[in-house]
């Protein structure tokens, strides 16, 4: 997929995330489109730029959710930086890389973001909701990418 198309996907993910924020947070298992946007962005940007993207999105997310400001910004900035760094190490032309990268990244981010917000992290989140949410996020990202590929590219 071209990088222009992927930016369209990232924009759509972020618009959907902030536009329907109350709905996503009400569901126990729902797609984490913000994490998807940060991780997809980290595939397109240099590590520093990806960290800035995560940092700004962390500020927006904490302000929207009334969560902890500094930790949320730091976690998402770290996710962006680490994503770009891992891409440099692992990236291959394999079509499987992006889904696996998204799935694992979202799963880890879900656990970390829940724990820094001061909310309990039950084992059901780690083993059930986390993977479910990560799978849904990956599915939504994949569907959006296919949509953009077919209709816009």
């Amino acid at each position: 997929m071209r990088s222009g198309g992927r930016w369209v996907v990232i924009g759509a993910l972020l618009l959907l995330h902030f536009g329907f924020h109350p709905m996503w947070t009400r569901w126990t298992v729902g797609p984490d489109l913000l994490a998807g946007g940060v991780l997809l962005g980290s595939l397109l940007l240099r590590a520093g730029q990806a960290a800035i993207l995560g940092f700004v999105l962390g500020l927006l997310e904490a302000s929207m959710a009334l969560g902890p400001l500094g930790p949320t910004m730091l976690v998402l900035a770290t996710a962006g930086f680490a994503g770009a760094w891992l891409r440099d190490i692992f990236y291959s032309d394999s079509g499987r890389f992006v889904p696996i990268f998204l799935f694992l990244g979202v799963w880890i981010l879900q656990i970390v973001l829940t724990s820094i917000a001061g909310n309990p992290v039950p084992s059901s989140l780690v083993l059930l909701w986390g993977p479910g949410s990560a799978a849904l996020t990956t599915l939504v990202c994949w569907a959006l990418e296919r949509f953009v590929e077919v209709f816009l590219e």
Partner: peptide, 24 residues
Amino acid sequence: PPKGRRRTDLVIAGVLLVVGGLAS
């Protein structure tokens, strides 16, 4: 990426870490 850019990335990450720490 070239080595110079890597250093820039690390500097940016360091600045964000400080700002994030201050915000915390």
